[in-house]
């Protein structure tokens, strides 16, 4: 079994109201060092067997077609997760 991680982030030019709300909250719990927060999504796709190039290509297609909306989001990472012990 292998796991592929897909990370999706809002495009830099798109306001991220959720990230902004989180950034406003941080000082209230005493963490004032952060100037900006942006909130994205992480997907984990599991396959039987090896995560070969063909599987990665399918994961990239899934990321572009379904997991993200290219109008507002960028797929910033599609990679094989390191194996856990």
């Amino acid at each position: 079994m292998a796991r592929i991680v897909v990370d999706v982030m809002p495009k830099p030019e798109i306001l991220d109201p959720q990230g902004k709300a989180i950034a406003n909250e941080l000082p209230r719990i005493g963490l004032s060092g952060f100037t900006e927060v942006r909130q994205g999504r992480r997907f984990e796709l599991t396959v039987e067997g090896e995560a070969d190039e063909q599987v990665l290509a399918q994961a990239r297609e899934a990321a572009e077609k379904l997991l993200s909306n290219p109008v507002i989001e960028d797929v910033v990472n599609v990679s094989v997760a390191p194996e856990e012990d």
Binding site: P10, I14, L15, P17, Q18, A21, N69, V71, I72
Partner: peptide
């Protein structure tokens, strides 16, 4: 309709959440 690409653009959360 935007997700189906019949219309351009998209909707995100309201500015004031």
């Amino acid at each position: 309709l935007t997700e189906a690409h019949l219309l351009p653009g998209s909707m995100i959360k309201n500015e004031q959440l």
